[in-house]
Design a protein around this nucleic acid. Structure first.
Lengths: 240, 240
DNA sequence: CGAAGGCTTGATAGACCTCAAACACAGTGG
DNA sequence: CCACTGTGTTTGAGGTCTATCAAGCCTTCG
């Protein structure tokens, strides 16, 4: 059932059929969450991890002045809550951006899986390392690039990551994120996001209809966003 | 010999004396590097990890326009290169900011240590997760805070992390980072770093003499920097 | 002693923010 | 079916934070 999650784990680090089975067996029945709900809350000491099966979520941090900083986007196939296995209480929350289905797996079950299949331990670790690589890229994005490049870069990253789990058809994908949300991800105001998106449209690089984004000129978008997909380490693609 | 590294690993995740011994035995003879050298280079496929024993280093990313973004600071006791075990080629480089002594341990040895002591596997994973938490905090720092707060926050983080390995005496510590370097870490120009530091001094929050930083008003600094040390997960301190 | 790099200061410019208002759209209730 | 409300988008105007440029000074080091 959790196709993307399994396929992605499989491709990431040569997981065997057997290990995949054991992992799938340890997953609970998926729960449906509505948009705007919390999957994990900042400061919680959870004893389980969440796997996002369908939908869109954001990892985010609430600052003391009330502002929200989005730290990364969570897409289907992501074991979004793995750090909570070793980091308690967790320093950020994960919130749904659209309706989502989420499966849970207890920390105890994860530890048992790792004990039984050390290879899975490396696979989980690998997941968190890629998350780390994404954070690093975002540091560079926020610290070094203009608003125009930042927005382009985020779109590039999403396109490549969504492609990995077969969620891009043609050059188009769904992006259930408001302009305010994009602002919280890129450190820009919603107003400026609006103007930046308009520029990307005006220059024929993307078109946007509601929540649907279509990349019209991928090469130009990567150029503008200074994007190199190396940091995503997505050698193993899942067929669309 | 590698006091800090061992002590820190020990405190991080209840490593036993025995595991510590095996780890120390696997470390090669430390090498001395001069300031400005590369410990690991962006794009390399290394087969070893580096442990920083003494000195200061920075994790950094070279952008296509030639700019450098500092992603985090590496201080004594950090196994700075752990992601390279599973992420090849590595997406960033690590450069010394001062003269450093560095010990190396092969990936093969690390894998063997983990096989022999699963607990060490979790300890290493934990290290990388804390690095991830630091990246997240930096995303928030760069995305949501003013220049004044950003600089204050970086100073807060360094003070707490250096304290953990006993490198703060009184309220003072060495910081072999140029103002240009602070700019590359905070996404600000060197000129503005200069003015921001002047403001922090003028307001009696810090004093700076050459490479030595002294925190005069810690509470005010944390307030200005919106700093909460939770994300560093440094429950286990090493006595100074 | 000269050169190079880092720090400091002033002036100007520009990128992005804030405020404000109008518009579009979906969901809700009468 | 139609107001009504709330959220998201769009546009304009003005303001501010931070960058850039430029020059002078200081320290370090060969």
């Amino acid at each position: 059932m959790p196709i993307h999650a399994l396929a992605k784990l499989r491709s990431n680090l040569g997981i065997s059929e057997r290990e995949l089975k054991d992992f799938a067996a340890a997953l609970g029945i998926p729960r449906i969450l509505r948009a705007g709900e919390e999957i994990v809350g900042q400061g919680e000491q959870s004893d389980f991890c969440a796997v996002l099966l369908t939908g869109f979520a954001s990892r985010q941090r609430l600052l003391t002045n009330g502002d929200i900083q989005i730290l990364s986007f969570v897409i289907p196939g992501d074991m979004c809550d793995l750090p909570s296995l070793l980091l308690k209480p967790i320093d950020h929350s994960i919130c749904t951006l659209s309706d989502c289905s989420v499966a849970y797996i207890s920390h105890a079950a994860i530890r048992k899986l790792i004990a039984d299949h050390p290879c899975l331990g490396y696979a989980f670790w690998h997941e968190t390392l890629i998350d780390g690589a994404i954070f690093r890229e975002w540091v560079a994005n926020l610290g070094s690039r203009s608003a125009y490049a930042r927005v382009a870069h985020v779109l590039c990253e999403l396109k490549v990551r969504l492609e990995t789990v077969g969620l891009v058809s043609g050059h188009q994908f769904d992006l259930p994120v408001t302009q305010r949300g994009l602002g919280q991800a890129t450190g820009l105001s919603a107003v400026h996001i609006n103007r930046t998106l308009q520029r990307l449209k005006r220059e024929g690089i993307v078109t946007i209809n509601g929540k649907s984004v279509s990349i019209e000129d991928w090469q130009q978008l990567t150029l503008v966003g200074d994007f190199d997909d190396g940091y995503l380490y997505n050698k193993g693609r899942v067929a669309a």
